[in-house]
């Protein structure tokens, strides 16, 4: 039993760091645009295929891994900027209801999903960048995630644009008065979130030896979203902590055959519990409603 627990913990930390990276994207976009971007999961698919494609071009070793990471992050950012400008920005301009943005996000996710579905039917084997044991891989994954999170937090807290992003997510109209371009900030947020998902995709490829076109919606699916909500949607450290917690719980549940088939129920029940007990999440702040 302890073996199972230990495996679950290690895997949980590893998967948790992937979930954390993706959850950051969900939480940042929600914080600044008040929108649940259901299309976010698809960036995993994009990142996975980009790194697969690059690896088949330039080979798979630690050096090319860095290149693949950069390429994946770049392309994900570019795709997210394009979708934001084409699909979400016009809606924001016209002040449509939130459900419209939701449906549009669903439409975008369908499009990306089906594009990959049409093009790549077979299961692809992940590029083998590194040859590490499971434990070492997990450590590397955690290190990558933590370094990224630290850099991002520094950016958000110390740089002018980071502060401007925080200001925009808090009070868009006052931010406008300061000369901050709201739309640019939102686009920047989308891009950062997507780039992080791209990074997460490469990390995923490191851990899981194969993937297919549905990896964004089936394998990863809504779990990072659950992590973001549990940790506190809108809060960056919340997304990270939520990612690790959910990852650990998931992997421990999967490690024991008695609980394994109940894993989704367990995870979503945690989501429900958190929403009932503390809706703003573990690290979220309670925002009272002004009448």
């Amino acid at each position: 039993m302890w073996n199972n627990l230990y495996n679950g913990l290690i895997n949980g930390l590893g998967m948790g760091s992937i979930y954390a990276l993706i959850a950051i994207g969900y939480t940042m976009v929600y914080g600044i645009a008040r929108m649940i971007n259901f299309a976010h999961g698809e960036f995993i698919t994009i990142g996975a295929f980009v790194s697969y494609g690059m690896a088949s071009l330039i080979g798979a070793n630690p050096i090319t891994m860095i290149i693949c990471i950069i390429a994946s992050m770049l392309i994900c950012a570019i795709v997210s900027i394009i979708t934001e400008k084409l699909a979400y920005y016009p809606l924001r301009k016209r002040n449509t209801k939130r459900i419209t943005a939701l449906i549009t996000a669903i439409g975008v996710s369908y499009i990306i999903y089906s594009l990959f579905n049409i093009q790549f039917q077979e299961i692809k084997s992940s590029p083998k960048f590194l040859n590490l044991s499971n434990t070492n891989l997990t450590i590397l994954t955690i290190v990558i995630t933590l370094v990224t999170v630290v850099l991002l937090t520094l950016f958000i807290n110390k740089t002018k644009f980071g502060k401007a992003m925080r200001a925009t997510s808090e009070n868009p109209s006052a931010a406008k008065l300061m000369g901050i371009n709201n739309d640019a900030m939102i686009t920047l947020t989308f891009a950062i979130g997507a780039a992080l998902a791209g990074l997460g995709a490469v990390v995923y490829c490191l851990r899981i030896p194969y993937f297919k076109f549905s990896v964004g919606s089936d394998a990863i699916g809504l779990i990072p979203f659950v992590a973001a909500v549990v940790g506190g949607i809108g809060s960056l450290p919340g997304a990270v902590i939520g990612g690790f917690i959910i990852g650990i719980i998931q992997q421990i549940s999967v490690a024991f055959p008695e609980t394994s088939p109940w894993t989704p129920a367990i995870l979503y029940s945690i989501l429900i519990l958190i929403l009932i007990i503390k809706p703003t999440g573990i690290l979220g702040k309670s925002i009272g409603e002004k009448v």
Binding site: V108, Y110, I111
Partner: peptide
């Protein structure tokens, strides 16, 4: 795949 693609485009 095409069905979902058309669906998504219609939605948007």
């Amino acid at each position: 795949g095409y069905q979902l693609l058309i669906y998504g485009v219609i939605l948007i």
